[in-house]
Amino acid sequence: MSEKEEGMSFLEHLEELRWHLIRAVLAVLVFAILAFVFYDVVFDDIILAPKNADFFTNRMFAQFADLIGVESLKINTQPFQLININMAGQFATHITVSLVIGLIVGFPYLFFEFWRFVRPALYSNEKKHARGSIFYTSFLFALGVLFGYYLITPLSVHFLGSYNVSSQVLNQINLSSYISTVTSIVLASGVIFELPILIFFLSKIGLISPEFLKKYRKHAVVLMLVLSAIITPPDIFSQVLVCLPLLILYEVGISISKRVQKQQAKEFE
């Protein structure tokens, strides 16, 4: 910690935090405004794309289904029409989606501002071990967002959009319901993929260890299955697809925890 930081009062720290938050919010707003302006690309080519047959994932499933001769694996072959039933529904959706896009695209800068605020309080060895945290945190978040968008979203849209309890009941899906489903899945996937980062920090402060993670691996698997069931449609295939990367991330987290433990042991020698 620098002498300047040590001499700062509580109110001065709050003032410093305020400016970091202001810059982070401004960055999100800039990206949100860009998304608002280019709404045709955001909606037609990104948000609404997973429900169309020509979407990348839907085409891959169709090709795989033709290859093995199982037609039931084809998804979103008959895209449904969305409806809006509120006077300000489309405008409100436009603003919501723009803010979500701003948050996702601006996430690296958000974390950068958080890191700039926290970094002066760290010791030199802690700064050394945390080097690259901005890159890895942003990379895992982006990986989770892409995973949610390209895999979970089209599967969920297909299952929920085509599901019916009777031929007498017609699905007329509201725009806000569709947007809520897509954005919640994508954001949840981005957050869940931060699991190795969470394990790293919990290991640093001594709350967990590699032995702890190995001991409760079975419990973790159950928790991952529950999380998969929450963010995916209620079918086994989708849940397994989501659970597999979570299991891989958990095993990566165990390796990270081991590395942290070794580094801390060297420091105490």
Rank of each mutant, 00 (worst) to 15 (best):
L146P: 03
L146C: 10
F147P: 00
F147Y: 09
F147I: 01
F147S: 00
Y149L: 01
Y149R: 00
Y150K: 10
Y150N: 12
Y150E: 09
Y150W: 11
L151I: 14
I152V: 13
I152Q: 05
T153E: 01
T153D: 04
T153G: 03
T153P: 00
S156P: 06
V157W: 00
V157F: 01
H158P: 08
G161W: 03
G161D: 02
G161F: 05
S162A: 13
S162E: 12
Y163H: 11
Y163I: 06
Y163Q: 08
N164L: 13
N164H: 15
V165R: 12
V165F: 15
S166N: 09
S166D: 11
S167W: 12
S167L: 15
Q168F: 15
Q168I: 15
L170K: 14
N171R: 09
N171W: 02
N171C: 06
N171P: 10
N171Y: 03
N171L: 08
N171V: 07
L175P: 04
L175Y: 10
S177D: 15
Y178N: 01
Y178K: 01
S180R: 07
T183E: 04
T183W: 01
T183D: 01
S184Y: 05
I185Q: 03
I185F: 00
L187E: 05
L187T: 11
G190M: 02
V191C: 08
I192D: 04
F193N: 00
F193D: 03
E194L: 13
E194A: 05
L195K: 00
P196I: 05
I197W: 05
I197V: 13
I197T: 08
I197G: 00
L198Y: 12
I199M: 08
I199P: 02
I199T: 02
F200D: 01
L202S: 06
L202P: 01
S203R: 00
S203K: 00
K204L: 10
K204M: 10
I205F: 12
G206M: 04
G206W: 07
L207E: 11
L207P: 07
L207G: 08
L207F: 14
I208C: 07
I208N: 06
S209C: 04
P210H: 10
E211D: 14
K215N: 11
K215W: 03
Y216H: 14
Y216V: 10
R217F: 14
K218V: 11
H219L: 13
H219G: 15
H219F: 12
V221R: 02
V221M: 10
V221S: 05
V221L: 12
V222N: 07
L225N: 06
L225D: 06
L227G: 03
S228Q: 04
S228M: 04
S228V: 03
I230R: 04
I231W: 06
P233H: 14
P233R: 12
P234E: 06
D235T: 09
D235K: 03
I236L: 15
I236F: 13
I236P: 03
F237D: 09
S238E: 03
S238P: 04
